[in-house]
Design a protein around this nucleic acid. Sequence first.
DNA 1: AATAACATTAGTATGATACTAACGAATGTC
DNA 2: GACATTCGTTAGTATCATACTAATGTTATT
Lengths: 137, 137
Amino acid sequence: MSQMANAITKRERDCLVFIEEYTGKGFPIRLHEIASTMKVKSPTAFNVIKRLEEKGLVESRNGMVRLTTAGKEAARKILVVHRTFESLFCQSGVPMEKACEEASDIDFLIPENNARKVLKRIDNPKVCPHGKPIRGR
Amino acid sequence: MSQMANAITKRERDCLVFIEEYTGKGFPIRLHEIASTMKVKSPTAFNVIKRLEEKGLVESRNGMVRLTTAGKEAARKILVVHRTFESLFCQSGVPMEKACEEASDIDFLIPENNARKVLKRIDNPKVCPHGKPIRGR
DNA sequence: AATAACATTAGTATGATACTAACGAATGTC
DNA sequence: GACATTCGTTAGTATCATACTAATGTTATT
């Protein structure tokens, strides 16, 4: 209720981003992989996936999980915001690890268009502190 | 679990900040006031207050609610972070209302010391867009 | 065909959020 | 002083997200 209709939780965010980053390399992802990365048991991961599925962000078939078009778009938006704030924190003197962690706590809460404005304000860096492109891939 | 031990929720944050701002003017606050401002029924507000009480941030007696020392300190920290990000958003071209709203979504998630670093990065404004002092009062 | 690895279902638990209904206490009005 | 209104509190219910164990399917590999 504090968020708009299509809100996701931190857990769902972590899961979504992990799938995006993993499957971005062309490998399919298995639930077991997700569970162990998120450090939860399979049924927990299964439920998170199920919720993401209900929200139309993820598809799973034969234990293979992948993002839908909407899911990819959602992940893309989150990553733009993530890298923007990560950059802001780093520019401000926060250590990279901490910057990343804190960006992860807020990147799914802030609309992309506002992050883009912030990006301009901080001199429009093209890559995040990890060297990944901030805007389109 | 995504947060540290003493984490509070968005609801609790809203409640805490509201009490801080209200009682800052020297008036005692009543539960009914809190409930109607937060747009929830009394029992809901009552429960939020109860949780804040358990966390040692609030005291209530005879239906009068006020912050403890720890509660004031927590509210102060939140407001430093709030005003920092509000300023950032405004400087970036986000309308003030929206800037405030979004700052409220994240200000309780970011540690004060990192916000202070961000504050320096954005040219150390002394007041937030509403004209309130950002650092100590 | 048997086993191992993994997915899935069922069932339970906790914490945050929110409600209604009912009750209690204080306050003010007639 | 009796009564009504207002507000706080308790009790009970519900939902959602999160997380677990235990049991059951399913698939793949040997």
